[in-house]
Design a protein around this nucleic acid. Sequence first.
DNA 1: TCAAAAGAAGCATATAATATGCTGGAAACC
DNA 2: GGTTTCCAGCATATTATATGCTTCTTTTGA
Lengths: 148, 148
Amino acid sequence: MRLTSYTDFTLRTLIYLGLNGNERATIQEISECYGISRNHLMKIVQDLSHQGLISTVRGKSGGMYLLRDPAEINVGALVRRTEADFRLVECFEAGPNGCRLTGGCVLTSALRDALEAFFEVLDGYTLADLLRPQRNLRRLLGMNSAIS
Amino acid sequence: MRLTSYTDFTLRTLIYLGLNGNERATIQEISECYGISRNHLMKIVQDLSHQGLISTVRGKSGGMYLLRDPAEINVGALVRRTEADFRLVECFEAGPNGCRLTGGCVLTSALRDALEAFFEVLDGYTLADLLRPQRNLRRLLGMNSAIS
DNA sequence: TCAAAAGAAGCATATAATATGCTGGAAACC
DNA sequence: GGTTTCCAGCATATTATATGCTTCTTTTGA
């Protein structure tokens, strides 16, 4: 039971951008800072862009920046979107799946409830909460101490 | 985000045995009933046996049966055990992991809380709860209508 | 105006976790 | 004694995910 690094990187990218203020950040810069794959990050950035969370600018002196107020970006909603596959067990999907217990099994609903509880916690966080220890985080990322 | 089929099959096996009463069930029988791999189930059964949840008997007319009262078998505890890897994100594990935010990041604790909430729900269920619609479940599995 | 910097898009490959299969062995029963 | 069943270890297949590669297009600044 784990989240994909896709989700992980999505959140970390938003944290980076949130800390970065009005400055533009490039994919190159973020991938190097976190030590993650540039290609993988590329797709994440495109998704974030399609979702309208960030704006990307091509060309020289291009890059990306947050479009929305961090307080409006909900972590739970974000994870629900990036994490595509919530099929905790085979029987989570509708239709004939082979498990003969389908229809009478209490387990399915128990797991659904548990998953819901998981997200309810995350729904209580916004990106702004993740950015709270701003000074410390900026230091960890080696950003300039002046906050834009 | 999904559980392994190992966990799924573990739970289904216990449900089968719970419904099966004092009868012995063979690996063959259970794997055919659910349409799952005999080999995979073999390992699950061995683990359940090592955990002291079931007793296995070799040889002709051998098989397995539940050792403990279903009301004493907690679903949360079971899933915690069968699902080995809870590293939701890279930074879940201690030590140097590469993420520069480690130490100042709120995300880690948010995810820990969410995971805890997930398990708290499952901790509220025992195998006995899963067996509740007994008659219906036995019918779904094609078991004899007489309950031993 | 042209070259360099940056993102866009599609496809191919690698990696890692999980699941499945295979072979041989040992115990229990009839 | 032989058949049935679980036991154990190793090998292979499958799948989702992550990474890499190549070729674009857009933008900007010298």
